[in-house]
Design a protein around this nucleic acid. Structure first.
Lengths: 354, 354
DNA sequence: TTGTACGCGTTATCAT
DNA sequence: ATGATAACGCGTACAA
C-alpha cells in the first residue's frame, strides 16, 4: 500500500449553516415569524414572507433534522440489523427496504451483527435510544443458538415497532416476513422427481437453524408424497459454512446420487464442481438445485436451477409493514401482528433438465 | 403470496421510556442533580448518587441520543452513499466502514444512489441537514456522466467532512481512497505474458468510466512493456452490464485469443462460459483473469484468477480517515487532503496456469 | 400581523 | 451538595 499525500490549500469559505435564529436576527424579526413565513403561514404578511423566503433561499436554509426529530419524537430513520452484508440475500433485502423507506422519506441505518449475539444486542440498544423509529431485523446465528431474545422483548416493550424477516422466532410477538422454505424445497424435489430422479441427496448444514429445518422437512415430505423412501444416508450435513470438497467427494463415492438439493448456492457450486471433476455430466448424469437465487446460480456454468427467495420483495414488505406501524400511532391496548409468508419460486436453468 | 394473519392480544405493558425529568420528579430532586449523579459527578453526595443511580438502573434509563446530538452538534452517524448494494465490492466496503465506525461508536446510515444522479443528490441533501457528521461515498454512474459535482461542493463548503472511494473525481477536494487499477491490470497481463500468452484480449465496458480507463491503460502498458503490440481488435467493449454471449462468441470466432482479461468477474464468467461451450480447455487453451475477487471468482469452476480490490480494507481506511477528520475539530484555514492508493493483488486460481 | 413563551432531553455554567 | 438557568434548533399555542 502506498500513499500519495497531496497538500492542497483551500480557502475554506465555509458557507456557514444558517438557522432560524440567524435569519431572525438578520431580518430583525422574531424566530417564530421566520418559522411561520417559511411554512407559508397565512398569519404572516405577504411582504415579510417574501423577504424571509428570499433570504432563506439565498443562504440555502434547511431545517435541522435533529431539532425536528427531538421536537416530533420522530427521526424518520429505521434501523436495520442483519447478520452479514457480504451476502447476496441480505443485500437484496436491504435494497428492498431502502427503496420503500426512501420513497416514504425514511433513511436506513444499517448495523451488522456479524452473526454475533453480543453485537446484535449492542447495536440494537445503541439505536433504540431515540435514533430510530423502528427496527427491521433478521436474527444472528449467535442469538438463535443462545436462544435469548430479551433485547427484542425490551424493544417491543418500549413500544418500538419491530419487523423480523427470514430468521425469526416465535418467542417474540411482532410483525414478521418469512418465506415458505418448506414449500421451496418441496417444489425443487418434486421437479427432480418429475425428471425421473430417484436418488436425490440433500446437502445441508446444521448452521441454518430454523431455516434449515424447514428445507429438510420439505425435502422429506416431497419424497414421501411421491412414494420415495427417505434415505438418511443421502442427507449430508456439513458443519458451518466451511465447505469441504473431500467430504462431498467421499459422499458421492459412498452413495449413489442422481440429483442434489443444496440449502445454499455455494453448497450447490461446490457439489456441482466435485461432480464435474469426477467427469459427470450436468444435468444428464446428475442434476442440481440450490437455494438462494444469487449471482452464483445465474452466472455459473452450467447455470444453476435455484429456489428464489425474493429478497427484495421481502425487504419492501418489511419496510411497508414497519412504516405503517410507525405511522399508525394507534397505541391501542390490543396489537395485531401479522406474519407475511412469501412464496419461493423455482428458477430453472441448465443444471436441471426441462 | 399468501398471508397468515394471527390476531394476538398483548397486554402492552409499555415500559415507558424514562427521562431525566421523570427521575427528578420521582425522586424530588432537580434535573441537573440527576444528570450529574448519573455521570458520577463529585459534586453530588454519595447518598443521592446511589439513590438516583439505583432508580435509573431499575427503570433502565438511557440518555436520548437525539437530545445529545442536538446539544453536541454531533450525531455519531456517518452517511454512506453507494451506487448499489447488491454488488460484492460495495458490500465489502460497507462492511469495512461499518466495522471501523462501530468500533468508534458510530452508526452507519446507508443510502443507495442506484447509479442515479438525482437520487445521489437527494439522499445527500437529506442527510446533510444535521443527520450525519460526515460522508463516505462513491460516485454513481449518473453523476459521472453528468459530470456535475455541485452537491459535493456544497457539502464540503458547509464544512462537512467527506471521503470518496473508488469512483472519485478530481473536481472535488477531499480525502480519497482508491485502488491502483492500472497496476492491477498490468500485473494481470504480465502474469499472462509470463505464461506464454501472446494474444491477450481485453473485455471491457464503456460504462466503467474513470475505472475502465485505468484498467485499459494498464493492459496496454503491460503489453507494450513486454514487447507485444497492442491489437485494438482484441479489445472488446460491451455496452452496459448487458452481457451478450453472441457478441463474445463472434469475437472468439473473429479473433485468435489465448487469454482474456475482463474488467469485472461477471464478464469473466461469461467469456469463460462461451469458451468452455466451444470446447476450449481452461487454462490449457485459454486463460482468464477478472477484476473483482468476489464469490463468482471463488466458487466458479474452473475458479477464476482475479484481481482483488480489497474492499473491506478500503472501507476501513475510508472510515478511519473520515472519523479522524470529524474528530480533529481543527477548523484550520488550510486543509490537508490525502489520497490513499491501495494496491490490488492477484489471486491465482484455476483459470490461469501457475 | 407579529411576537412571547414553552417544550422536546440533555448538559454546562453559575448561583445558592 | 443542590438547583436554577440557558442553550442546542424548531414549532406552536397563545398573547399582543
Amino acid at each position: 500500500m502506498c500513499t500519495f499525500i497531496s497538500y492542497k490549500k483551500q480557502s475554506l469559505i465555509l458557507k456557514k449553516v444558517i438557522t432560524l435564529k440567524h435569519i431572525a436576527r438578520e431580518l430583525e424579526v422574531s424566530i417564530s415569524t421566520v418559522s411561520k413565513a417559511l411554512k407559508n403561514s397565512e398569519e404572516i404578511s405577504r411582504d415579510t414572507k417574501e423577504r424571509i423566503q428570499a433570504y432563506a433561499k439565498l443562504y440555502n436554509y434547511r431545517p435541522n433534522n435533529i431539532a425536528i426529530s427531538l421536537k416530533n419524537k420522530r427521526t424518520k430513520n429505521i434501523g436495520v440489523i442483519i447478520p452479514d452484508i457480504v451476502h447476496h440475500f441480505f443485500t437484496t433485502v436491504v435494497r428492498g427496504i431502502e427503496s420503500y423507506a426512501n420513497s416514504k422519506g425514511y433513511n436506513v441505518i444499517v448495523c451488522l451483527s456479524d452473526e454475533s449475539f453480543d453485537k446484535e444486542v449492542i447495536n440494537m440498544e445503541m439505536l433504540a435510544n431515540g435514533s430510530i423509529d423502528g427496527f427491521i431485523m433478521s436474527l444472528s446465528v449467535g442469538t438463535q443458538l443462545k436462544n435469548d431474545y430479551n433485547h427484542l422483548k425490551e424493544i417491543t416493550e418500549q413500544g418500538i415497532p419491530l419487523v423480523m424477516f427470514d430468521r425469526v422466532t416465535d418467542e417474540i410477538k411482532c410483525d414478521k416476513v418469512i418465506i415458505n422454505d418448506r414449500e421451496g424445497a418441496y417444489m425443487a424435489v418434486k421437479k427432480l422427481i418429475g425428471n425421473g430422479r430417484k436418488k436425490i441427496a440433500l446437502i445441508t448444514t446444521d448452521n441454518y437453524l430454523s431455516i434449515g429445518k424447514q428445507r429438510t422437512d420439505g425435502y422429506r415430505d416431497a419424497l414421501r408424497d411421491h412414494g420415495l423412501e427417505v434415505n438418511e444416508n443421502l442427507i449430508l450435513s456439513m458443519p458451518q459454512m466451511k465447505m469441504d470438497e473431500k467430504a462431498i467427494s467421499d459422499f458421492y463415492d459412498r452413495e449413489e446420487v442422481d440429483a442434489v438439493l443444496c440449502v445454499h448456492e455455494t453448497f450447490a457450486m461446490y457439489s456441482m464442481r466435485v461432480a464435474l471433476k469426477k467427469g459427470l455430466k450436468v444435468p444428464e448424469d446428475i442434476e442440481f438445485i440450490g437455494f438462494t437465487d444469487g449471482n452464483l446460480s445465474k452466472y455459473a456454468y452450467p447455470s444453476l436451477t435455484a429456489i428464489a427467495q425474493h429478497g427484495e420483495q421481502m425487504g419492501e414488505m418489511s419496510s411497508k409493514m414497519l412504516i405503517e406501524k410507525i405511522e399508525s400511532e394507534k397505541e391501542e391496548e390490543e396489537e395485531t401482528y401479522v406474519t407475511e409468508v412469501l412464496q419461493s419460486t423455482l428458477v430453472e436453468r441448465e443444471s436441471t433438465k426441462n
